[in-house]
Amino acid sequence: MPMPELPIETDRLLLRNFQKSDLDAVMSYHALPDVQRYLDWKARDKVEVQAALDTMIQEHRMHRPGDAISLAVVRKSDNALIGQVSLRWTDATAGQAELRFIVGPTYRRQGYAREAARAMLDLGFDKLSMHRIFARCAARNEASAKMLRDLGMRLEAHYREHAMFQGEWDEELHFALLDREWLRGSKVKELRRHMVA
């Protein structure tokens, strides 16, 4: 699997590897109850978030199914770490990957998640040659569902009361997109100054 070229730059964002010094920024959104839902680990206090961060620092290449690329989402204008995006390789034979995203509460509703997710779909389909990328969200999380739809992802599943989460029934949506359905960002960010000169 080819290595992604990092950082990935979009109009307003930089997607880069996590580093040790990100702890406080990650802590500020990781420990929130509504974010816990989307994590594979418990991250309620500094010790647990530190462990999560240590894992994510290692996640920058894909060797085998199960591996993930987890990136910090940094706003270019003020260098603030506002959230994270990841792509996890779930199935090698069928070229499947899961997209996840988290944006801290104070940075929501400005299209940052969509901008980061779009870059990850480009990465997944163009660089990593995935066949299908899927994403999940809670049914009541309308902002996430709308964003995934706007990216062209199709609703493939709507599970009702399929699991217990924090003492209540969970309702979950699955969205998916096939390689041939993906409309590339086609923004030529790769064109570097020295190549044009």
């Binding site: 199935d91 034979t93 069928a94 499947q96 199709r154 493939e156 599943a157 709507h158 699955h174 998916a176």
Partner: peptide
């Protein structure tokens, strides 16, 4: 509840 397309080979 679900219709998965090309999710596995």
């Amino acid at each position: 509840e679900a219709h998965f397309r090309e999710h596995a080979f």
